[in-house]
Design a protein around this nucleic acid. Sequence first.
DNA 1: AATGTTGTATTGTTCAACAAACGCTCCTGC
DNA 2: GCAGGAGCGTTTGTTGAACAATACAACATT
Lengths: 245, 245
Amino acid sequence: MFNRIEVKPAYRVVCETIEAQIVAGSLRPGDLLPTETQLADSFGLTRHTVREGLRQLEESGLVGRAAGRRLAVKVPDHAELAPRATQILRMQGVTFRELWEASMLLEPESARGAAGQITAQHLIALEANLAAMEAALNAGRSIIALDVEFHALLAAIAANKALMLAREPVSQLFFPALKQLFDHPRTRDTGPRRLIEAHRRIVDALRVRDSVTAEQWMRRHMQDFRRGYDVCGLDTDQPLPASFV
Amino acid sequence: MFNRIEVKPAYRVVCETIEAQIVAGSLRPGDLLPTETQLADSFGLTRHTVREGLRQLEESGLVGRAAGRRLAVKVPDHAELAPRATQILRMQGVTFRELWEASMLLEPESARGAAGQITAQHLIALEANLAAMEAALNAGRSIIALDVEFHALLAAIAANKALMLAREPVSQLFFPALKQLFDHPRTRDTGPRRLIEAHRRIVDALRVRDSVTAEQWMRRHMQDFRRGYDVCGLDTDQPLPASFV
DNA sequence: AATGTTGTATTGTTCAACAAACGCTCCTGC
DNA sequence: GCAGGAGCGTTTGTTGAACAATACAACATT
């Protein structure tokens, strides 16, 4: 009968009210919010209180500074969400196995989907990535960042928004976790070569829109990672060390 | 050469500084933050400026009110992130097809994983869900919420944090999208029955830890959804209507 | 046309308070 | 001895009136 009453601070109400207006559609992406003073007047609050609400709204990604100083409604981007998701996974002590199992699902599907959508434009980007990797390898620089980029490229080509959202945080953790591999004597020399080889094969398959082969090579590629982890004697059930930031 | 210069407001620096302390580990989950006045003194800012930073930190999920009023560092929960991810997908105009393709990957894996981890405790929860569904159906109430819950239960049982994070936002959109189906004359009568039947089969398979059958039935279950959508003449490539809130 | 200048609107920040809620200690009554 | 209040200090939530800094636009200058 009498449900739990919770008093929300005014700034929270401000945030929720504006958010509600946005999802309801009365404020559309691109629209400028009223000025802080106007909002304060409307709500019958001080500018300070309104500002605290706006700070939360800002962090939620629903508003941002489009052109000038004024806050504008925008469509939040999944690129903003990914780092936060990554952070959650790390702080919750996600294990290599969990990441690997997720990647084992998401990446092959990403490759498969890319085969159906790929354009000449995309191929150029992929080739550029491969070339950059070769160069980095020869120069003795790390290829991890380029690896992450490669997989992100594939996902972007596949153009499934749900998949991209799901994939990104996992990839942000999984691939950097492989840094250990490339530093390890057992895999330092062969690892990067095998990686580039797999990427090469995937691109070749995509060029001829061969989704089956692309998917197969991606799966092999993922299994390679897993095997490398084992070969190096690393425990797949341990939480990832915090150093992967 | 000359990169974009961005001057960050002080409240933003406050937020980032504290966040850095948390990820660096000098502030651990459970620790209380200093009081607003102390922070203001340390930073050499006004209490209000500090508060704006704290509001952002709060929204980011890294701090929260644990016991009393004081803010405490906490491990962010993926349950907080899911609604935001859902929002992003919806605002970006995600289509039924995208959601379905993602679910077609994630849900069967979820069922498969659950088979390996399930306990008597879990089975009780699943049975309770099934019973509640039967009851809801007989009473003519909607079973959508219970369906979402069923799939969330499976994911929780499978206990893969990366998978749960990936799955949740998709499920929050995908299953409610099926409301149309259960309102449509073509599937109104048979749909819910088939749904419960599939859930039943999955639970039965899980009870005997038969991961293959569980996964198969889940896949069939998903394909059923898709077929229903087609049968009702709905366009799978249209963005979901905004009414799924 | 490109570069200064001015003016105004809006955000960022400060200072000085006060109200309300919480946690704590200490005190009372049994 | 201890359960239950009464007070008290601490901390957050909120207000008010300012001022500084910046961005934008319109205009003047060269």
